[in-house]
């Protein structure tokens, strides 16, 4: 049985029903469920499958394909650190390492307070502000250790869940 709140369940069912082809909603549904469960848990995969009349495997085929669908638990803030060649030129490695060291996590891990996950990421399209990172849909550029500290501090203080594609 579904463990989703009934209103969310209805909302999603309506969203699927409104689509010309239910399958085209699969990524949107995964984003919503990901937001609800914190990440795309096994349960979320099964929920999505039931909503879309797909098998869990069919959902899994997609969920594991995309890098913005998280099949493992993540922190409240997912920090995508750009490792594109331009950011690399500006010593991207040190941004990534600095973040990992600062938060005490390895790549993909969740910080002890459950707040942060650091992931390397494909070029984010913020090359004019290299080195850059993306946190819950917001870009941060021209990074250096001081700036990173300030950003983390700010995020810790004011948590806001602003966008669906984190």
């Amino acid at each position: 049985m579904s463990t989703l709140p009934p209103e969310l369940q209805t909302e999603l069912a309506q969203q699927v029903a409104a689509a010309d082809h239910p399958r085209e909603q699969v990524i949107n549904i995964m984003y919503v469920l990901q937001k609800h469960y914190g990440y795309m848990s096994d349960e979320a995969v099964e929920e999505a499958a039931a909503l879309l009349d797909m098998t869990p495997l069919e959902v899994e085929e997609l969920a594991t394909f995309y890098d913005f669908i998280y099949r493992e638990a993540v922190g409240k803030f997912v920090i995508h650190v750009c490792d594109g060649v331009v950011c690399w030129m500006f010593h991207e490695g040190s941004v990534f390492d600095y973040l990992c060291e600062k938060l005490g996590v390895c790549a993909g891990g969740v910080s002890a307070d459950g707040m942060f996950t650091v992931l390397p990421s494909a070029c984010l399209g913020f090359c004019d502000h290299a080195p850059a990172m993306l946190i819950n849909g917001v870009f941060y550029g021209h990074l250096n250790p001081e700036k990173i500290d300030a950003i983390l501090e700010k995020l810790r203080r004011e948590y806001c869940d602003l966008v669906i594609c984190r």
């Binding site: 869990p56 495997l57 085929e61 594991t64």
Partner: peptide, 19 residues
């Protein structure tokens, strides 16, 4: 039948079931 398929991407691609 749709309980067996391809998961992941690139050279990590995995052929199997959801569980």
């Amino acid at each position: 039948y749709f309980d067996y398929g391809a998961m992941q991407i690139g050279n990590r691609m995995y052929f199997g079931r959801f569980a």
